[in-house]
Design a protein around this nucleic acid. Structure first.
Length: 564
RNA sequence: GCACUCGUAGCUCAGCUGGAUAGAGCAUCUGAUUGCGGUUCAGAAGGCCACAGGUUCGAAUCCUGUCGAGUGUACCA
């Protein structure tokens, strides 16, 4: 349920009742729990405008606000802060509603069509750590949008076109071998080809010729190329499956698929006067910037900017997207800024369509240096995943007497979950320091802490057996706060939605789990001496908490375990 | 050179549509719990929010400048 918007509405109405039209009617979270649940600070800003005492305005407004049944208390404090405390009755009533499979979160009233472009591996190489953030953040955003009711189209804009494939084909021709055998380690194959390319002028020339042949549709080249792609996609799919990322073949729409549109895109941009020739290349210039966006090279070749423009056109015109999210490395900010601007100049998109570069920082090691293997190579994503699972296995196997099968399942869920959570819990815009120990710690804002909290609640519920679904009686401040936190899930998701920031959800989860741990420590549920009424009340609250944790984690693409 | 991002506790990070005494976790110190599930909970200590100005009743948050870090900057993707 949405709480803030309900309060905002009441504020608006209350202002109407006292004949004031304010600029801002938004409540914010209370800065301290002692103040209440929410606060409104608008009275101070209004005071100057109306030439009235802020406190008087606040009191007048508070008198109106008090009439609402939503609040137990409306206080005016200091120079004119208005503090709201929600009624416990309101909280308990809604806790019951949050026991459903959506944890009480409504579907958006105005669903839109959204394209999320993420992962986008290069088909000539294996996936490496650089692809992790895009894949995880993108998948989470897609899950979130979907959960809230948008129609989500996941697009994997794979790098399956360009010079590198000429290189691969040339190298393959040179070393005629069985394609499966050769491609079993694509990485090695690519490296070998690249080496040849750098050393031999003759080989490089041949590679370029193959690019031209490929792009003009040479049968044999296409066949080889498509075998490369198939093989490479298989590798990617293994990783997606392992990560539990919802990408598959149907999401693949690679660079090559726009090949046939590029020519007409360029001529359309020229006709519209958006693109001009400069130094032999076709460029789009922008006001206040010296760097143009080049869409066609001197030699007539197209660039990735051209492909991106074709992709925008496709997504908006063919797919009908109203919001397009590009989950790509922050280093490409300028590129996307230019591409988006160009798309607007060309009239491919109007103001109603939101084009967003969901930028994220790099993964760094403990010393703040780019994350590499010991000998300075790129870390293969598959190795990173295996390592996460291995480490998770070590952490949990200290704990209990699992069967081999259980241990494997738990190691998978915890390892993958931790890897994802560590990434998602940090503001995506900044670089992030990758730390195995912190990632798999049970303390602090980690996946294990959440999964453990969930399993713990689950254990209590199992021990309790069947019990009645009932509005919990919130008997103390801790229970109130926990209940309120459970109910703010929807507000949290909407904020994360608007800003495309997964860490807003993890912050919420951490607060929720922490509150639960406190509640659990202080308010026994199944211990002797707890009366039946209180027990059932607390069981309901615990169940609602578990539900909110589960729903949130699932949006993050993290599984919960009934037992750890 | 120019552009973008960033600078908050020893470390890793929240907070940034301006609000009350700037919050967590780790590490450090102290206490509770003989265990509804062990890896739990409570408390202490730790801050010129890079620096200097400005706007404002009010600035970590907005603006300008300086310093420092990272990234990008014409035919790779």
């Amino acid at each position: 349920m949405q709480i803030k918007s309900q309060i905002n509405k009441i504020i608006e109405e209350s202002f109407k009742a006292i004949n004031i039209t304010p600029k801002n009617t938004q409540v914010s979270d209370a800065t301290k729990p002692e103040f209440g649940d929410y606060q409104y600070n608008g009275a101070m800003a209004l005071a100057k405008e109306l030439k009235q005492n802020p406190r008087e305005i606040a009191i007048k407004l508070a008198n109106e606000l008090e009439k609402s049944e939503l609040f137990e208390k409306v206080d005016v404090a200091g120079p004119g802060f208005i503090n709201f405390t929600l009624s416990s009755n309101f909280l308990s009533k809604n806790i019951v509603k949050s026991l459903d499979s959506r944890a009480g979160v409504a579907v958006k009233e105005d669903p839109i069509k959204v394209v999320v472009d993420y992962s986008s591996p290069n088909m000539a190489k294996q996936m490496h750590v650089g692809h992790l953030r895009s894949t995880i953040i993108g998948d989470t955003l897609a899950n979130l949008f979907e959960f809230l009711g948008d129609e989500v189209i996941r697009q994997n804009h794979i790098g399956d076109w360009g010079t590198q494939f000429g290189m691969l084909i040339a190298y393959f021709e040179e070393n005629q071998k069985d394609i499966d055998a050769k491609l079993s380690d694509l990485e090695e194959f690519y490296k070998a080809a690249k080496k040849r390319f750098d050393i031999s002028e003759e080989f490089a020339k041949k590679a370029r010729e193959y690019v031209v042949k490929l792009q003009s549709g040479d049968e044999k080249c296409l066949q080889l190329w498509s075998a490369f792609i198939d093989k490479s996609l298989q590798h990617c799919q293994e990783i997606y499956d392992k990560l539990g990322v919802k990408l598959d073949k149907s999401c693949v729409k690679g660079e090559s698929s726009y090949n046939d549109d590029l020519k007409s895109i360029v001529s359309e941009l020229e006709t519209k006067g958006v693109a001009k020739e400069s130094q032999g290349a076709k460029c789009i210039f922008f006001e206040g910037s010296n760097n143009p966006l080049i869409i066609q090279k001197q030699d007539g070749g197209y660039l990735y900017a051209t492909t991106d423009l074709a992709a925008i056109k496709y997504r908006v015109e063919k797919l009908g997207a109203k919001r397009v999210c590009y989950v790509v490395d922050a280093r490409q900010s300028e590129h996307f800024k230019q591409v988006f601007e160009a798309a607007r100049l060309a009239g491919f998109v109007d103001e109603s369509i939101l084009l967003e570069h969901i930028a994220f920082g790099m993964m760094l090691d403990k010393n703040g240096k780019p994350f590499k293997t010991r000998d300075g190579g790129t870390v293969k994503l598959i190795d990173l995943i295996e390592e996460a699972i291995k480490r998770a296995r070590e952490v949990i196997s200290r704990a209990d007497d699992y069967t081999q099968e259980e241990l494997e399942k738990i190691a998978q869920v915890v390892g993958i979950g931790s890897l994802k959570y560590a990434d998602l819990s940090i503001n995506r815009q900044s670089n992030y320091i990758f730390d195995w120990d912190k990632m798999l710690s049970l303390d602090g804002n980690t996946a294990l802490y959440m999964q453990y909290a969930y399993a713990r609640i689950n254990s209590i519920l199992n021990r309790a057996g069947k019990f009645e679904t009932r509005e919990p009686k919130l008997s103390d401040e801790l229970e109130r706060r926990l209940a309120l936190k459970v109910l703010t899930l929807e507000d949290t998701l909407l904020k994360a939605y608007k800003e495309a920031m997964p860490h807003i959800i993890t912050n919420y989860l951490y607060e929720l789990a922490t509150l639960f741990m406190k509640f659990y420590e202080n308010n026994p549920i199944l211990k002797e001496g707890v009366d039946e009424e209180t027990k059932i009340s607390r069981l309901n609250l615990a169940k609602a908490t578990a539900n909110a944790i589960k729903v949130s984690l699932n949006i993050l693409g993290i599984e919960v375990l009934e037992r750890i």
